[in-house]
Design a binder for these strands. Structure first.
Lengths: 121, 121
DNA sequence: AGCAATAGTTACCTTAAGGTAAGTGCCTTA
DNA sequence: TAAGGCACTTACCTTAAGGTAACTATTGCT
Protein backbone atom coordinates (compact mmCIF):
# COMPACT_ATOMS: atom_id res chain seq x y z
CA UNK A 1 0.00 0.00 0.00
CA UNK A 2 1.66 3.16 -1.25
CA UNK A 3 1.23 6.40 0.55
CA UNK A 4 0.56 9.47 -1.49
CA UNK A 5 2.42 12.04 0.50
CA UNK A 6 4.76 14.50 -1.13
CA UNK A 7 6.48 17.67 -0.05
CA UNK A 8 3.35 19.75 -0.33
CA UNK A 9 1.23 17.43 1.77
CA UNK A 10 2.36 18.74 5.14
CA UNK A 11 -0.33 21.26 5.80
CA UNK A 12 1.24 22.88 8.83
CA UNK A 13 4.78 23.38 7.53
CA UNK A 14 4.30 23.88 3.81
CA UNK A 15 5.67 27.36 3.08
CA UNK A 16 3.11 27.81 0.36
CA UNK A 17 0.35 27.39 2.86
CA UNK A 18 1.85 29.36 5.72
CA UNK A 19 3.31 32.24 3.75
CA UNK A 20 1.65 32.52 0.37
CA UNK A 21 -1.90 31.90 1.53
CA UNK A 22 -1.76 35.38 2.95
CA UNK A 23 -1.59 36.83 -0.56
CA UNK A 24 -4.49 34.79 -1.79
CA UNK A 25 -6.77 37.57 -0.69
CA UNK A 26 -8.31 40.17 -2.92
CA UNK A 27 -5.95 43.07 -2.41
CA UNK A 28 -2.45 42.27 -1.13
CA UNK A 29 -0.76 41.68 -4.48
CA UNK A 30 -2.30 44.81 -5.94
CA UNK A 31 -1.14 46.98 -3.03
CA UNK A 32 2.38 45.59 -3.34
CA UNK A 33 2.48 46.22 -7.08
CA UNK A 34 1.32 49.79 -6.68
CA UNK A 35 3.73 50.54 -3.85
CA UNK A 36 6.44 48.96 -5.99
CA UNK A 37 6.02 51.70 -8.56
CA UNK A 38 6.49 54.68 -6.25
CA UNK A 39 8.78 55.70 -3.43
CA UNK A 40 6.06 56.43 -0.93
CA UNK A 41 2.33 56.74 -0.93
CA UNK A 42 -0.23 58.03 1.52
CA UNK A 43 -3.37 56.20 2.63
CA UNK A 44 -5.87 58.20 0.64
CA UNK A 45 -3.65 58.18 -2.42
CA UNK A 46 -3.73 54.41 -2.34
CA UNK A 47 -7.50 54.50 -1.92
CA UNK A 48 -7.91 56.67 -4.99
CA UNK A 49 -5.42 54.72 -7.06
CA UNK A 50 -7.12 51.41 -6.44
CA UNK A 51 -10.52 52.94 -6.91
CA UNK A 52 -12.64 50.02 -5.78
CA UNK A 53 -11.18 49.06 -2.43
CA UNK A 54 -12.97 50.07 0.76
CA UNK A 55 -11.25 52.03 3.52
CA UNK A 56 -11.64 49.10 5.84
CA UNK A 57 -10.02 46.59 3.50
CA UNK A 58 -7.16 48.94 2.70
CA UNK A 59 -6.35 49.23 6.40
CA UNK A 60 -6.46 45.51 7.05
CA UNK A 61 -4.45 44.75 3.92
CA UNK A 62 -1.78 47.26 4.85
CA UNK A 63 -1.66 45.94 8.42
CA UNK A 64 -1.04 42.35 7.38
CA UNK A 65 1.58 43.42 4.86
CA UNK A 66 3.19 45.42 7.64
CA UNK A 67 3.09 42.43 9.98
CA UNK A 68 5.08 40.41 7.44
CA UNK A 69 7.49 43.32 7.04
CA UNK A 70 6.67 43.69 3.38
CA UNK A 71 5.48 47.26 3.77
CA UNK A 72 6.72 49.99 6.10
CA UNK A 73 4.39 52.47 7.71
CA UNK A 74 5.61 55.88 8.77
CA UNK A 75 3.46 58.24 10.81
CA UNK A 76 4.13 61.97 10.79
CA UNK A 77 2.57 63.52 13.88
CA UNK A 78 1.00 66.46 12.13
CA UNK A 79 -2.53 67.73 11.77
CA UNK A 80 -4.17 66.51 9.66
CA UNK A 81 -2.26 63.29 10.14
CA UNK A 82 0.08 62.05 7.47
CA UNK A 83 0.96 58.39 7.09
CA UNK A 84 3.21 57.12 4.35
CA UNK A 85 3.59 53.60 3.09
CA UNK A 86 6.52 52.12 1.20
CA UNK A 87 7.85 48.68 0.34
CA UNK A 88 10.61 47.18 2.46
CA UNK A 89 13.59 45.23 1.15
CA UNK A 90 11.68 42.03 1.80
CA UNK A 91 8.75 43.43 -0.09
CA UNK A 92 10.98 44.29 -3.00
CA UNK A 93 12.42 40.79 -3.11
CA UNK A 94 8.90 39.39 -3.22
CA UNK A 95 7.92 41.87 -5.90
CA UNK A 96 10.49 40.42 -8.28
CA UNK A 97 8.59 37.16 -8.30
CA UNK A 98 5.23 38.88 -8.46
CA UNK A 99 6.41 40.79 -11.50
CA UNK A 100 7.29 37.44 -13.03
CA UNK A 101 3.74 36.32 -12.45
CA UNK A 102 2.28 39.61 -13.64
CA UNK A 103 4.29 39.39 -16.84
CA UNK A 104 3.11 35.85 -17.40
CA UNK A 105 -0.48 36.96 -16.81
CA UNK A 106 -0.10 39.74 -19.34
CA UNK A 107 1.45 37.48 -21.97
CA UNK A 108 -1.14 34.76 -21.55
CA UNK A 109 -4.21 36.81 -20.85
CA UNK A 110 -5.79 36.70 -24.30
CA UNK A 111 -5.10 33.01 -24.85
CA UNK A 112 -6.51 32.19 -21.43
CA UNK A 113 -9.69 34.16 -22.00
CA UNK A 114 -10.04 32.28 -25.28
CA UNK A 115 -9.58 28.94 -23.52
CA UNK A 116 -12.23 29.88 -21.00
CA UNK A 117 -14.69 30.67 -23.77
CA UNK A 118 -14.06 27.42 -25.61
CA UNK A 119 -14.50 25.52 -22.38
CA UNK A 120 -17.84 27.11 -21.69
CA UNK A 121 -19.26 26.53 -25.17
CA UNK B 1 -6.25 68.16 -9.25
CA UNK B 2 -4.09 65.15 -9.88
CA UNK B 3 -5.62 61.83 -10.70
CA UNK B 4 -4.20 58.78 -9.02
CA UNK B 5 -4.63 56.23 -11.75
CA UNK B 6 -1.85 53.88 -12.70
CA UNK B 7 -1.58 50.75 -14.78
CA UNK B 8 -3.16 48.59 -12.12
CA UNK B 9 -6.19 50.81 -11.64
CA UNK B 10 -8.17 49.48 -14.58
CA UNK B 11 -10.24 46.84 -12.86
CA UNK B 12 -11.67 45.25 -15.97
CA UNK B 13 -8.49 44.88 -18.00
CA UNK B 14 -5.78 44.44 -15.41
CA UNK B 15 -4.25 41.03 -16.11
CA UNK B 16 -3.58 40.54 -12.43
CA UNK B 17 -7.24 40.84 -11.72
CA UNK B 18 -8.58 38.86 -14.66
CA UNK B 19 -6.03 36.05 -14.69
CA UNK B 20 -4.30 35.77 -11.34
CA UNK B 21 -7.39 36.27 -9.20
CA UNK B 22 -8.31 32.76 -10.22
CA UNK B 23 -5.35 31.37 -8.28
CA UNK B 24 -6.18 33.32 -5.18
CA UNK B 25 -8.33 30.43 -4.05
CA UNK B 26 -7.38 27.82 -1.52
CA UNK B 27 -6.28 24.98 -3.78
CA UNK B 28 -5.24 25.91 -7.35
CA UNK B 29 -1.58 26.61 -6.68
CA UNK B 30 -1.21 23.44 -4.65
CA UNK B 31 -2.78 21.28 -7.35
CA UNK B 32 -0.48 22.80 -9.95
CA UNK B 33 2.60 22.23 -7.81
CA UNK B 34 1.70 18.60 -7.20
CA UNK B 35 0.90 17.90 -10.83
CA UNK B 36 4.17 19.60 -11.71
CA UNK B 37 6.06 16.88 -9.87
CA UNK B 38 4.60 13.88 -11.68
CA UNK B 39 3.74 12.91 -15.22
CA UNK B 40 0.12 12.04 -14.56
CA UNK B 41 -2.10 11.60 -11.58
CA UNK B 42 -5.55 10.17 -11.02
CA UNK B 43 -8.37 11.87 -9.15
CA UNK B 44 -8.21 9.81 -5.99
CA UNK B 45 -4.43 9.94 -5.92
CA UNK B 46 -4.66 13.72 -5.83
CA UNK B 47 -7.25 13.49 -3.09
CA UNK B 48 -4.96 11.35 -0.95
CA UNK B 49 -1.88 13.42 -1.67
CA UNK B 50 -3.50 16.66 -0.63
CA UNK B 51 -5.09 15.01 2.36
CA UNK B 52 -7.35 17.85 3.43
CA UNK B 53 -9.21 18.80 0.28
CA UNK B 54 -12.79 17.67 -0.22
CA UNK B 55 -13.91 15.78 -3.32
CA UNK B 56 -16.09 18.64 -4.31
CA UNK B 57 -13.34 21.25 -4.14
CA UNK B 58 -10.91 19.03 -6.01
CA UNK B 59 -13.39 18.72 -8.87
CA UNK B 60 -14.10 22.43 -9.09
CA UNK B 61 -10.41 23.30 -8.80
CA UNK B 62 -9.48 20.87 -11.56
CA UNK B 63 -12.31 22.15 -13.74
CA UNK B 64 -11.23 25.78 -13.54
CA UNK B 65 -7.61 24.83 -14.18
CA UNK B 66 -8.80 22.84 -17.17
CA UNK B 67 -10.84 25.79 -18.42
CA UNK B 68 -7.69 27.92 -18.45
CA UNK B 69 -5.83 25.10 -20.21
CA UNK B 70 -3.36 24.76 -17.38
CA UNK B 71 -4.27 21.14 -16.73
CA UNK B 72 -5.33 18.43 -19.15
CA UNK B 73 -7.93 15.83 -18.30
CA UNK B 74 -7.95 12.44 -19.98
CA UNK B 75 -10.79 9.99 -19.53
CA UNK B 76 -10.24 6.30 -20.15
CA UNK B 77 -13.62 4.70 -20.81
CA UNK B 78 -13.12 1.75 -18.53
CA UNK B 79 -14.96 0.35 -15.55
CA UNK B 80 -14.27 1.45 -12.92
CA UNK B 81 -13.56 4.76 -14.65
CA UNK B 82 -10.03 6.10 -14.91
CA UNK B 83 -9.30 9.80 -15.31
CA UNK B 84 -5.80 11.17 -15.43
CA UNK B 85 -4.66 14.73 -14.93
CA UNK B 86 -1.44 16.34 -16.10
CA UNK B 87 -0.08 19.84 -16.60
CA UNK B 88 -0.18 21.43 -20.04
CA UNK B 89 2.60 23.48 -21.61
CA UNK B 90 0.85 26.60 -20.39
CA UNK B 91 0.66 25.12 -16.94
CA UNK B 92 4.36 24.39 -17.01
CA UNK B 93 5.18 27.94 -18.04
CA UNK B 94 3.13 29.23 -15.12
CA UNK B 95 4.78 26.74 -12.77
CA UNK B 96 8.17 28.32 -13.40
CA UNK B 97 6.94 31.52 -11.79
CA UNK B 98 5.12 29.69 -9.03
CA UNK B 99 8.32 27.88 -8.19
CA UNK B 100 9.98 31.26 -7.94
CA UNK B 101 7.36 32.27 -5.41
CA UNK B 102 7.56 28.96 -3.58
CA UNK B 103 11.32 29.30 -3.28
CA UNK B 104 10.95 32.80 -1.94
CA UNK B 105 8.36 31.57 0.58
CA UNK B 106 10.72 28.86 1.74
CA UNK B 107 13.67 31.21 2.09
CA UNK B 108 11.70 33.83 3.97
CA UNK B 109 9.34 31.68 5.97
CA UNK B 110 11.18 31.81 9.30
CA UNK B 111 11.91 35.51 9.13
CA UNK B 112 8.32 36.24 8.24
CA UNK B 113 6.92 34.19 11.09
CA UNK B 114 9.27 36.11 13.35
CA UNK B 115 8.03 39.42 11.99
CA UNK B 116 4.46 38.35 12.58
CA UNK B 117 5.23 37.54 16.19
CA UNK B 118 6.96 40.84 16.82
CA UNK B 119 4.05 42.68 15.27
CA UNK B 120 1.55 40.96 17.52
CA UNK B 121 3.51 41.59 20.71
C1' DA C 1 -27.28 -10.78 -3.31
C1' DG C 2 -24.30 -7.59 -1.74
C1' DC C 3 -20.06 -5.03 -1.26
C1' DA C 4 -16.09 -2.45 -3.14
C1' DA C 5 -13.89 0.88 -6.11
C1' DT C 6 -13.74 5.10 -9.33
C1' DA C 7 -14.94 9.73 -10.35
C1' DG C 8 -17.80 12.26 -9.77
C1' DT C 9 -22.79 15.29 -8.63
C1' DT C 10 -26.15 17.34 -5.62
C1' DA C 11 -28.34 19.63 -1.79
C1' DC C 12 -27.62 21.73 2.23
C1' DC C 13 -25.07 24.27 5.72
C1' DT C 14 -21.20 27.01 7.90
C1' DT C 15 -17.60 30.34 7.98
C1' DA C 16 -14.83 33.91 6.67
C1' DA C 17 -13.97 37.56 3.56
C1' DG C 18 -15.38 41.69 2.24
C1' DG C 19 -18.71 45.77 1.81
C1' DT C 20 -21.47 49.82 3.86
C1' DA C 21 -22.08 53.52 6.44
C1' DA C 22 -21.48 56.09 10.32
C1' DG C 23 -18.45 57.88 13.91
C1' DT C 24 -13.73 59.74 15.86
C1' DG C 25 -10.19 63.60 16.90
C1' DC C 26 -7.89 67.36 15.56
C1' DC C 27 -6.88 71.39 13.16
C1' DT C 28 -7.58 74.62 8.96
C1' DT C 29 -10.13 77.32 5.97
C1' DA C 30 -14.47 79.73 4.41
C1' DT D 1 -20.20 78.34 13.03
C1' DA D 2 -19.92 74.99 10.08
C1' DA D 3 -17.70 72.21 6.82
C1' DG D 4 -13.83 69.54 5.25
C1' DG D 5 -9.69 66.73 5.12
C1' DC D 6 -6.90 62.83 6.98
C1' DA D 7 -6.41 58.19 8.63
C1' DC D 8 -8.51 55.55 10.57
C1' DT D 9 -12.24 52.35 13.84
C1' DT D 10 -16.53 50.12 14.77
C1' DA D 11 -20.87 47.73 14.18
C1' DC D 12 -23.58 45.54 11.19
C1' DC D 13 -24.78 43.02 7.03
C1' DT D 14 -24.13 40.38 2.61
C1' DT D 15 -21.95 37.17 -0.34
C1' DA D 16 -19.12 33.70 -1.87
C1' DA D 17 -16.04 30.10 -0.77
C1' DG D 18 -15.66 25.92 1.05
C1' DG D 19 -17.19 21.74 3.86
C1' DT D 20 -20.29 17.54 4.74
C1' DA D 21 -22.63 13.79 3.62
C1' DA D 22 -25.44 11.28 0.79
C1' DC D 23 -26.32 9.65 -3.84
C1' DT D 24 -25.08 8.24 -8.89
C1' DA D 25 -23.56 4.45 -12.62
C1' DT D 26 -20.89 0.70 -13.77
C1' DT D 27 -18.65 -3.67 -13.29
C1' DG D 28 -15.97 -7.29 -10.87
C1' DC D 29 -15.48 -9.95 -6.90
C1' DT D 30 -17.16 -13.06 -3.27
Amino acid sequence: MENNLNKYSDVKNCPIRTVLDRFGDKWSVLVLLILGEVEKMRFNELLRTMGDISQKMLTVTLRTLEADDLVKRTIYPEVPPRVEYETTERGKSLLKHIHGLAGWAEENKLAILESRNKFKG
